[in-house]
């Protein structure tokens, strides 16, 4: 790891100030991606501003079907939240399958979303439940937030403070894990609103990161059934081929995971 300067913020305001004073700073929350990346010398922030001790970023609140998850909520907290589990167990289930228990104790939803790893789980959920990403300065629709591989709409120094969404009527996440890293080789989050609108968000498979699949959404909006997936074409040309899987295989997984998610929802 290269030299860096660590700062611990106790408020959002202080964090923004610290970041403003840094040459090339980065926020760190759980650090479960950032610290290993720095360790491999693939990232070299001059300063780290630690958000983990900011009270305003914590907590999960559910009001009716309206959900607010603080950015510093750990995967473990999300996975085991009884309030959230009562209205949207799919998100709890997703969080409970990120990394491993030790990672879930540190990693946070805000950190995961801000990093926008193309194989991360949360971005799929955010897109599928049409979440709003709340920052210290504005609110961003999930559809506008995830812009490219490891890229988001966040501006310099902007801090995610929470995510908000209305719990869908039905939802589920199915992940086919990369046998080595256990990140999603393909993960599909399906969500169906009360009005029948269906969203299908895919992670791990796209060449450009998380995406929604219009064909699957149309088919499932018309017929909310695992069988509805069978005749949808998933175009492999936009999908990723890497050491672990071809685009054609991932295209198959998109359909299979979608079908299973619908069955599980």
């Amino acid at each position: 790891m290269y030299e860096t300067n660590y700062h611990r913020a106790s408020s959002i305001q202080e964090a923004v100030q610290m970041m403003g004073a840094a040459a090339e700073g980065k926020y760190v929350s759980g650090g479960m991606t950032l610290i290993p990346t720095m360790r491999l010398r693939l990232a070299a922030p001059s300063d780290l501003v630690d958000l983990r001790h900011i009270t305003e970023l914590k907590g999960i609140a559910v009001d009716g079907r309206s959900v607010r998850i603080g950015a510093a909520a750990t995967h473990e907290e999300v996975a085991t939240s009884a309030e959230l589990g009562a209205v949207c167990p799919a998100v709890c289930d997703l969080a409970g399958h990120i990394g491993d228990p030790a990672v879930r104790h540190m990693g946070t939803i805000g950190g995961s979303i801000a990093n926008n790893d193309p194989a991360a789980d949360y971005p799929a959920a955010m897109l599928a439940v049409d979440a709003v990403i709340v920052t210290d300065r504005r609110e961003i629709k999930a559809g506008d937030f995830f812009t490219d591989l490891f890229e988001t709409a966040l501006e310099e120094g902007e801090i995610i403070t929470a995510v908000r969404f209305d719990a869908p009527a039905k939802a589920a996440y199915q992940k086919f894990a990369n046998p080595a890293s256990r990140y999603a080789m393909t993960g599909v989050f399906v969500a169906r609103r009360n009005d029948g609108e269906v969203r299908v968000a895919v992670t791990g498979a796209g060449s450009n990161g998380v995406f929604r699949h219009q064909g699957l959404e149309a088919a499932l909006s018309a017929n909310w059934s695992p069988d509805a997936v069978a005749n949808v074409a998933v175009d492999a040309s936009d999908l990723l081929t890497d050491l672990h899987a071809s685009a054609a295989y991932r295209a198959n997984l998109v359909k299979v995971m979608t079908k299973r998610a619908v069955a599980a929802a």
């Binding site: 080595a180 890293s181 256990r182 050491l243 672990h244």
Partner: peptide, 13 residues
């Protein structure tokens, strides 16, 4: 070497 870490070399778990 493409499989130079546990992210790419699958160890039995």
């Amino acid at each position: 070497l493409l499989t130079a870490s546990y992210l790419d070399y699958a160890m039995p778990r």
